[in-house]
């Protein structure tokens, strides 16, 4: 009886499934399946040449007990993400908000200027030239000519400066997906409600933002938060391309790079998958925390 009911509900929803089908086909095949494979492999020892051997939670125990580099990577990733994540989220939001009332031309120009760093996947590699550690490096020569420093700084080679440089560069390129989605989100706000709010006693722009604009933008705020969590915690390429691998003293080592090291360079796929799983678990927890914070907006 119950089965029949479900079957008839499924049959009734056939148009829904039909419309979902194209996306689901690619999603299951090229995203969900690889994720499941990777989760299963994280409980194995797998070197690409022999069949995977099931080792239980050994990989995870090794990570926390024996692998000093993993702890370094974990610390760097957290430090990096907890600084860049919130700052760039707020930047995305406030710049999108500030330019929302400007005229068309100004809006277009400012949007372009701030989005420009994200437009090419590789533009950030120019920073390695700008931050070059000899006198020909643009930034070093500028600071020397101002008399602020006498000797060129070793920006990307000095373990004390690596993480700082990476944070600044990440912030520079962080007005990407989230920024565009906020700009689009502001376009969806129903401005009629501003008048209603004015009658109801909204005093200033901040109240207007908190009680009228933000509640309408909750879905976009959540989207922006998730993209921000992903970019902040899965940082790796920037460090790889600017500081090299391994970076001096592992000062630029992150979880993504640690996974890359094991899976791609040392052929220990199982261990690499375990690192990726930990990274996922961290991002999942952050997502739950931030999701519940966003739910409280406007109350």
């Amino acid at each position: 009886m119950k089965n029949n009911k479900l079957a008839s509900r499924i049959w009734k929803s056939r148009i829904s499934y039909l419309m979902l089908l194209p996306f689901l086909f690619f999603f299951f095949l090229l995203l969900l399946l690889p994720i499941l494979v990777s989760i299963v492999l994280s409980f194995t020892s797998f070197d690409f040449f022999n069949m995977p051997v099931f080792v239980g939670v050994d990989n995870f125990i090794t990570l926390f007990v024996e692998d000093g580099e993993f702890i370094t990577a974990l610390q760097n990733t957290f430090l990096f993400a907890l600084i860049t994540g919130p700052i760039s989220y707020l930047l995305c939001f406030f710049i999108a908000w500030l330019i929302n009332d400007l005229n068309h031309v100004m809006r277009s120009v400012i949007t372009f200027v701030f989005y420009a760093p994200s437009i090419s996947g590789s533009l950030y590699t120019i920073w390695s030239i700008l931050l070059s550690s000899d006198r020909y490096g643009m930034i070093n020569s500028f600071l020397i000519s101002l008399g602020i420093i006498k000797e060129p700084l070793l920006f990307l080679n000095d373990p004390d400066m690596i993480l700082g440089c990476l944070i600044v560069i990440q912030l520079w390129m962080s007005l990407g997906t989230g920024f565009l989605s906020f700009i689009a989100g502001f376009q969806m706000v129903n401005r009629d409600l501003f008048e209603v709010g004015a009658i109801d006693g909204i005093q200033n722009r901040w109240q207007q933002l908190w009680y009228i604009t933000l509640p309408q933008m909750k879905p976009m705020l959540l989207f922006g938060a998730i993209t921000q969590i992903v970019t902040a915690f899965s940082v790796g390429d920037v460090s790889l391309n600017l500081c090299g691998f391994p970076s001096v003293n592992n000062a630029g080592l992150t979880l993504t790079l640690h996974a890359y090291d094991y899976a791609n360079l040392r052929f220990e796929m199982g261990y690499g998958c375990a690192i990726t799983f930990i990274l996922f678990a961290i991002m999942y927890i952050m997502h739950r925390i931030i999701g519940s914070l966003i739910n409280r907006i406007g109350r």
Partner: peptide, 24 residues
């Protein structure tokens, strides 16, 4: 399905490139 999509969004890494390559 909605929940799986959000969770999948959080699973990143070049680890996925290997199984994806095999499937392709």
């Amino acid at each position: 399905l909605n929940r799986i999509i959000v969770v999948a969004l959080l699973y990143t890494g070049n680890i996925l490139a290997v199984p994806r390559y095999l499937i392709i």
